[in-house]
Every structure is written in structure tokens, then in C-alpha cells.
Amino acid sequence: MASQGTKRSYEQMETDGERQNATEIRASVGKMIDGIGRFYIQMCTELKLSDYEGRLIQNSLTIERMVLSAFDERRNKYLEEHPSAGKDPKKTGGPIYKRVDRKWMRELVLYDKEEIRRIWRQANNGDDATAGLTHMMIWHSNLNDTTYQRTRALVRTGMDPRMCSLMQGSTLPRRSGAAGAAVKGVGTMVMELIRMIKRGINDRNFWRGENGRKTRSAYERMCNILKGKFQTAAQRAMMDQVRESRNPGNAEIEDLIFLARSALILRGSVAHKSCLPACVYGPAVASGYDFEKEGYSLVGIDPFKLLQNSQVYSLIRPNENPAHKSQLVWMACNSAAFEDLRVLSFIRGTKVSPRGKLSTRGVQIASNENMDAMESSTLELRSRYWAIRTRSGGNTNQQRASAGQISVQPAFSVQRNLPFDKPTIMAAFTGNTEGRTSDMRAEIIRMMEGAKPEEMSFQGRGVFELSDERAANPIVPSFDMSNEGSYFFGDNAEEYDN
């Protein structure tokens, strides 16, 4: 993207840094990872977990959730003011799984939030270390993106479920800051804005008074975040219109849905970061690795190297396929839920299948599930090659597409044709070009129609051997075009429920 120079890199967003050079960025990201790792080690000690239990991804998720809940100030305040039966607002906890007599047992633990905050700050040299908290939120978000298709949420806001490739980060909490905003897809931002506008339509006082002023500035800020994701002048001009509207209503909703559809071809720039579970960072720190000293990046080879040398386990339900569970977590670790499966298959070195073909449910185990038949197995999170994460949407291309997802959002900077089903997408653009945004709409449609099938995206960008740390010898991959490109292809993934 041309304006790259004016933006802070995501590592800076990730670490609240002012302008830093590459070495400083690597050190501050490393410091953040160190903090998460030290916190995780301490929690495993508190909970008396064995090494194996500490490497269980379900335990990692519970521990991450506990610290996120302990620092969720708004919710904590709300819980104190609106006490609900049987919930102690000062405590947080969740299921911890232990191996007892050759069987997995679930144990519900409860801790004072104050105590968890103390352990977290102690692991982070006394700081609140917001960057580390956001990092864990993005890992949870990436896992949700890989596990669930947001059909219901899309339909509720009037969008087409086939636009799911635009929904990265749709389950990120509001408090995820600049680093969170960077990884949100165009569809996620559109959905947040539509929800806001709908509230304004239904509630006369939404934009009024002292609160209304705050609401208005939040609305304009979200519009600017979305505008910054678009790469064409016409899309940005249309966002200006939406932002400046005196009284946002149905016309703005129409414009936003139009823009979301246009992003299936004229893709937005959305950041991709490899955020790993805390149970990967903990053992690495415990083994003596100093992330701050060595430096770390979320968008280069580092996460690949770390996963190459990590042992992570997962509980497996009786009829689940461990290899499929591994694929789910591998995609989440690489922030690749909406990437082209052919690119992923090449990088991973084994075939990556669409969601609907995987015999696996989510990673988390519900409290009512029976533990008797639970097994555990090693997650295979290694890769054959590594590639640089991208934040450009890439230019655009036609490809055989599917009944489910009709476009992709690249996660890796790797040369390819970008699949999208042009006739299906263009069919949504018939007729409606009147109104105050008509010239911009016409211009956007013209650009979409001009998108050429034979153009290559990320020209000359390749993948790298894991021994090639400096990215000196790019390998331009070859793809098996007979395979499906979309992950949520004609899909039956479970729906995400809060």
C-alpha cells in the first residue's frame, strides 16, 4: 500500500510504541512475548500442572481467558453494579484439565481477579502490559475465525453469508486497541457500523446529549479505520460520505453494504499476525530463551520457528480426527482463516481442507461434555516452508469459486491468482447506482469489472525454506488448481455463540 510509510507498523501498534527502528520493534515485541511466557509459567505453578498438562491447549485457553477477564475493567465495573446470582464479580476462573488415573478430569478453578492481575503485572515488570493482553485477544479471535462461520451475524446486519472472507476479527472485544483495529476485516468494521446506525434509528437519543457526542466521535473513528483499509480513492470518498452524514440511517447502511461487497474484489488491507497460545510461549521462556534479547516478529519467520520446536497437546472428542484438529489450530496460529487453501497447503506441506470436510468441533470443551471418553493427542503445528504475512489485500483475480465463501483475504505475501467468483459478486451490483453516491458507485463498479483474471497478485513473492531466515531465496510455489480455494466452501461450520 502506498501510504505504508505514514502508518505505524503493526509491531508498533502491538507494543504501543512511538516510531521505533526494526531492532527496537523486535525487542519490544519480544518483551511482550516474554511477559506472556513468564505469566503462563507462574500460572502453571499456581495450578500445580504437570509439564504435559501445561502444554494442553484447553488449559492455555482457560488461563488466557482468566487474565483477560481480570483486566476487563468495563465488564468488571458492570458486574459490580449489576450483581447477578451466583456470579462473584471479583473472581474469575474456568475449567482446568488434569490427568488422573490414566483419565482426563475437569476441575473448575476460581481465583481472585486481583490475584491474577498481581501475577500478570509481576510477570511483566510491574506494568499492565496491555500489548500482551491484546495479543491474547487476537489469538482467540484468530481461533474463532478458523472455527466458526459468522453466517447468522452477517444475515442479521443485512449482509450476504458468502462475504465471510471479510469477517476477520469479528469476535475481537471493543477494547483491543490499535492492534485489534489493524486485524479487523472490512466486513467486521461494516458490521460494527451498521449495528451502531441501527441503534440510532431505533433509539432517538442515541446521537443526542453528552453521551451522543461520545457516540458520534466513536462512529467517526470507526469510519476512519474502515476508510484506511480501502485502497481505492472511490471507496475512500464513499467512506467520507458515510462519516460526514448528519443523521446516519438506511442510506448509510446501503452504502456500507455496497462497500463491503466491493471489497470482495477491490480488497481492503487487513493486517495478519501470528499470535500463538500462551502454552507455546511459556515452555520456550522456561527453556531459557530470551525473546527480548533475541527479538521477535509476528509477521516473519519467528512464529514458524517457534511452532517448529513446540509440543502442544489437545483434548480430542471420541469421533474427532486429531489431524483435522491440528489443521484448525495451525490455521489459527498463522492467522489464515480466509487465505486461499492452495497457498496454505503449499506452505504447510500437507493438504489443507475446507472447514466442512474437517471432523472436528471447536477447541474448547463445553462444561456439560462427558470427560470419560476424552483422549488427548499432539497437535501437528509444523510447516514445510515459511512466508511473510501481508497486510495488503493483493490485486484481484477471477477463479472458480464456491457456493460458500466467494473470495479470499490473503494472509501471506505469496504470488498467486486470487480466487473470487466474479459473476456471483457482480450480480449483486445491478441497477442500484442512484442517489448521492452514484458517481462513486459507478466508478467502483467500473474498477471491479476491469479486474483481470490473468493478473498475478504479489508478483514474484515466494515462500522460503525454514533454514532461509533472511528470506534470501524465494520459492514461487505451484498450486494444484483442481483443489478448492475457499475454506468455508459450501460450508456447515458451527455458528459462533458468545
Rank of each mutant, 00 (worst) to 15 (best):
L315V: 14
R267L: 08
L307Q: 14
G177M: 08
G485K: 02
G212H: 02
A123Y: 07
H135A: 05
I406V: 08
F412A: 06
M456D: 12
G268C: 12
S467H: 02
R8K: 11
T390F: 02
Y219I: 10
E380C: 01
D255L: 13
D203N: 08
R416Q: 13
P173K: 12
N144S: 13
V352L: 02
S310F: 03
R99N: 14
E339G: 12
G394P: 10
M159C: 06
C275P: 10
S353R: 01
S376M: 12
D112I: 07
K305Q: 14
V183S: 15
E46D: 06
P419L: 08
E244I: 06
W104R: 05
C223T: 15
A251H: 10
G431Q: 02
M481I: 03
Q409K: 03
E484V: 12
S9C: 07
Q4A: 00
R355C: 10
N309L: 00
V280E: 15
N319A: 03
L110W: 10
T146Y: 12
G462T: 07
R216C: 05
C164G: 06
N144E: 11
M222H: 13
A85P: 04
S335I: 03
V155Q: 00
E375K: 13
S50D: 00
N334M: 00
E64Y: 02
S478G: 12
A153L: 06
R75C: 13
E252D: 05
K273W: 09
A442S: 08
D128N: 14
E254I: 12
F464I: 12
R156T: 02
L315M: 01
G187N: 04
A401L: 08
A284Y: 13
D112K: 06
K184P: 04
C275G: 07
C44N: 07
R243N: 15
K48R: 06
R8F: 11
Q235I: 02
M456F: 12
S60I: 02
L143W: 09
S359T: 08
I36K: 07
Y289M: 14
D491W: 03
I445H: 10
M222P: 08
G94E: 09
S3W: 12
Q409A: 00
P303V: 02
R65T: 02
N492W: 12
S84I: 07
R106Q: 04
R118N: 07
M448S: 12
Q231K: 06
G435M: 11
I36M: 12
C279R: 14
T232K: 01
N250F: 02
R446T: 01
N125D: 13
L264T: 07
Q398T: 14
T157F: 05
A182T: 13
Q327R: 15
E53H: 07
G249K: 05
K305L: 01
E210I: 05
L259E: 08
M189C: 06
E320W: 09
T92N: 04
K422Q: 04
G249A: 04
R342W: 13
A251N: 10
M238D: 06
T232N: 15
E443L: 10
I138W: 10
F258A: 01
Q405W: 10
G394Q: 02
N397Q: 02
G349K: 10
L256M: 14
V299I: 10
S367E: 04
E24F: 05
D372C: 15
F206E: 13
L379V: 02
C279P: 08
Y10W: 15
L79M: 04
V408P: 09
M191A: 12
D88T: 05
A284T: 14
I253H: 03
L298C: 14
A260V: 02
D34I: 01
S457H: 03
Q235T: 11
E192S: 12
E494C: 01
A286S: 05
C333V: 00
E24P: 06
W386K: 11
N417K: 12
M448E: 02
P322M: 07
I197M: 04
E484G: 09
R152G: 15
Y487N: 02
D497T: 15
A260S: 06
I444G: 00
Y40E: 10
R175G: 05
W386V: 03
V343P: 07
S269F: 10
L307P: 13
Q231M: 00
E53P: 00
A427G: 15
R317D: 11
A271M: 09
H82E: 08
G393A: 02
T360P: 15
D51F: 03
D340M: 11
K7C: 11
R162Q: 08
Y10V: 00
D421Y: 05
G54W: 12
Q364E: 05
A181E: 14
K293P: 13
V312G: 03
K113E: 06
C164A: 15
G209V: 06
N124S: 13
R400D: 12
L172G: 07
M238S: 04
C164I: 00
R441P: 13
R65Q: 10
S457W: 09
L172K: 10
G295E: 05
S141I: 14
M440R: 01
W120T: 08
W386Q: 12
N211G: 01
Y289D: 09
R150F: 09
E494Q: 03
L143P: 06
N224T: 00
K325D: 11
Q168G: 02
R389K: 14
Q149A: 11
R204G: 14
N125A: 02
F489Q: 10
K227H: 11
S482T: 04
C44H: 09
G431M: 04
F464N: 06
N202E: 14
I116F: 15
V312T: 01
E14Q: 14
A411I: 07
I25L: 01
E115M: 11
D112V: 08
F464Y: 08
R382E: 09
N124H: 00
K214A: 12
C333T: 04
K422M: 13
A472I: 08
A323E: 04
M196K: 06
R213V: 07
G394T: 06
D491Q: 09
D127G: 04
G282Y: 08
R441G: 13
P477I: 11
S28Y: 03
R236C: 12
I475K: 02
R150P: 07
M43P: 09
A411S: 12
A2Q: 10
L276T: 12
N211L: 15
Q231L: 12
L61Q: 07
I194F: 12
N334W: 06
E455D: 08
W104T: 05
R65H: 07
A271H: 09
P318H: 03
R441S: 12
G393M: 10
P474K: 12
R204S: 09
A366H: 10
G30S: 12
A451F: 01
L133H: 08
T146Q: 12
G462H: 10
A271I: 07
G187R: 06
R382C: 07
A263Y: 09
E449L: 02
N21D: 04
M238K: 07
M239Q: 12
R55W: 10
H140D: 07
A401R: 15
Y52Q: 12
L68F: 12
G126A: 05
T396S: 03
W104S: 03
L133Q: 12
L143R: 09
P248W: 08
E465H: 10
T151V: 09
E11W: 07
T15C: 03
S287H: 10
A260R: 08
D290Y: 14
D302L: 04
A286T: 15
P161V: 01
L56N: 01
G393I: 10
N309R: 00
S383W: 10
C279E: 12
E292W: 07
L381K: 07
R267E: 12
E294G: 02
E254M: 08
K184S: 02
L306V: 15
A218I: 13
G5W: 09
R400G: 15
F206S: 12
D145N: 15
P173S: 03
G490Q: 11
L108G: 03
T147H: 10
V29S: 03
R441H: 13
D421E: 04
R199A: 14
G185T: 03
E434R: 00
G209T: 12
Y496E: 11
Y296G: 13
E369D: 05
A234V: 15
C279K: 12
P474E: 00
P303A: 05
A218V: 07
S376C: 15
D16T: 00
A427H: 15
N250T: 02
E220I: 03
G485L: 03
V363Y: 15
L256V: 01
T188M: 10
Y10H: 12
P419T: 06
K103H: 09
